[in-house]
Design a protein around this nucleic acid. Structure first.
Lengths: 177, 177
DNA sequence: CTGAACATTTAGAATATTTCGAACGTTCTG
DNA sequence: CAGAACGTTCGAAATATTCTAAATGTTCAG
């Protein structure tokens, strides 16, 4: 493999590894495809990256799911061929939607469930503190969810709203006046 | 530990684990502190979460670095005490800035370095394709960097701009007209 | 100065993830 | 229908990560 490509592949691999989203190999696969003039087969990718075919097969699936790589049938060949997607925004939408938003909603669900079992939290009664905190957390993540929704559908994202969530006082109990 | 707290702790642990940002333990520590009425010591945390003190010590450091947990000295005690932060936006800023943006910049750097070594890419010459692609990638991530910058400083974030990056044609060579 | 109370570092054990090659099933070719 | 060409799945090996308990270093009380 070309020196230029090799350094790009390794660099992108490193970046991917530190992203928390893609593995190093996935980054390397994408990088290779991105600088390739045409679609590559599994074997070619495995060959150039010096990885087993099975490993490429597994890793490339994620890339396809996230719309970072497209499967492109080549006429006259029975092999699967792949090429890098160039619509990065599309891929980011997918990642935000399916990864971040999913995590955000997990938090929202946990808060809901916990709130449900932490009953009778009127102010001043025991449990009120927890209830307030859960509500604050749920509120913030609700806004975050809305923000991601806006981003994903291409609308402007009001980061302001997140900043304006009023932080609760640090300590417990009914607020001093 | 209380049932309500226990389920919240576990739920947040699961959410954290799938976030790609925090480990399960870190999520659990935060959850415990978030529902605690006052600051907790390392030993108390280790106790309640049934983890070794050293593990808590290591994991809580990350939480402090990301402003999700604050160290709060308790007078009369030599132990370190910790409490959950309530300014989530602050924490998110920190995470975006230090994690996402760092990754984004890694990509920008890789593109720059690769571009530098892939010289002489005038149109139609060999290497032009790579140069164009690198430029497209660099452009997108440049905008992303700006977007994160805007988010971090609380300004509205024009997601539109990202969507408007024109995807290159999928195939190589000079564009057909 | 000495010992106790801490948090942190370290080395190794436990656990999870990644990777590979072989086995498998499917689709195409002749 | 038989065999070859594929991609995928599976189990084991390699590797990386997480966790613990002991060791270390530091601060404070007496």
């Amino acid at each position: 493999m070309d020196d230029v490509v090799a350094s790009f592949v390794d660099g992108m691999g490193a970046a991917a590894a530190s992203s928390g989203i893609l593995s190093q190999q996935q980054g390397r696969i994408f990088a290779l495809l991105y600088l390739a003039e045409g679609p590559l087969s599994l074997d070619e990718i495995a060959d150039q990256l010096e990885q087993s075919k099975s490993n490429i097969s597994v890793n490339i699936r994620t890339l396809v799911e996230w719309h970072l790589v497209k499967r492109r049938p080549i006429r006259g060949s029975r092999k699967d061929h792949y090429e890098a997607a160039t619509d990065f925004f599309r891929a980011f939408q997918e990642i935000f939607e399916r990864r971040f938003r999913w995590t955000v909603r997990q938090v929202i669900d946990v808060v809901k469930e916990t709130s449900a079992s932490a009953e009778g939290g009127r102010r001043g009664t025991p449990g009120a503190f927890r209830r307030e905190r859960l509500q604050a957390l749920g509120g913030f993540f609700g806004l975050l969810d809305a923000g991601i929704g806006a981003f994903v559908s291409g609308k402007p994202f009001p980061a302001q709203k997140l900043a304006q969530v009023v932080p609760l006082p640090g300590r417990a109990g009914p607020r001093a006046r």
